Amino acid sequence: MQVAVWDTYVTKKDGSVMHFDIIAPDHIKDSTIIYTFGKDYLQSKNQGNQPLTAKECNFCHIEKATDEMVLSIQQKGYYIIEMQNCN
């Protein structure tokens, strides 16, 4: 499975910046859907009201999905790679 990687930086409520990648099937081209995935993830981190738009989230590249990514995409539609300040 090929997936699209969306590089995302969101300012948290405490002012620090979360950096994470949203991984979604490469056929999803609508950024609104990608932002919905990101907002769902932010909600799970108690950051649900933080803005997530083209300013914070941009398409980066296409890559081959790992088994872990595929399982998450089958369950939720997306996978998140936490990079910085995601706790």
Rank of each mutant, 00 (worst) to 15 (best):
M1G: 12
M1W: 10
Q2Y: 07
Q2E: 14
Q2A: 07
V3P: 11
A4Y: 04
A4I: 03
V5M: 14
V5E: 13
W6A: 00
D7E: 15
T8V: 10
T8Q: 11
T8K: 06
T8L: 11
Y9V: 02
T11G: 01
K12I: 00
K12M: 09
K13W: 03
K13D: 10
K13S: 15
D14A: 00
D14K: 01
G15C: 06
G15I: 03
G15T: 00
M18L: 04
M18E: 00
I22W: 06
I22S: 04
A24M: 08
P25A: 06
D26M: 08
I28D: 09
D30H: 10
S31G: 04
S31K: 12
T32E: 15
I33F: 12
I33C: 11
I33D: 13
Y35R: 12
Y35W: 15
Y35T: 04
Y35P: 02
T36E: 15
F37R: 01
F37K: 01
K39F: 04
K39R: 15
D40W: 08
D40K: 12
Y41K: 06
Y41Q: 05
Y41V: 05
Y41D: 05
L42P: 02
L42A: 03
L42D: 01
L42E: 00
Q43H: 12
K45Q: 10
K45N: 03
K45P: 00
N46M: 12
Q47C: 00
Q47N: 03
G48F: 02
G48V: 03
G48D: 06
G48H: 01
N49M: 07
Q50I: 02
Q50Y: 06
L52N: 02
L52T: 00
T53E: 09
T53M: 05
T53Q: 12
T53D: 10
A54Y: 13
K55F: 12
E56P: 04
C57G: 08
C57I: 06
N58F: 08
N58T: 10
F59H: 07
C60Y: 15
H61A: 07
H61W: 08
I62V: 14
I62H: 15
K64D: 15
K64I: 06
A65P: 09
A65R: 06
T66K: 14
D67N: 12
E68N: 10
E68H: 10
V70L: 06
V70Y: 04
V70W: 03
L71R: 15
L71Q: 15
S72V: 01
S72P: 03
S72G: 05
S72M: 13
I73Y: 05
I73A: 13
Q74T: 08
Q75V: 11
Q75C: 11
Q75D: 14
K76M: 14
K76A: 13
K76L: 15
G77L: 04
G77N: 07
Y78N: 09
Y78V: 04
M83Q: 13
Q84A: 12
Q84W: 10
Q84C: 07
N85G: 01
N85M: 05
N85S: 07
C86P: 03
N87V: 06
N87M: 07
N87S: 12
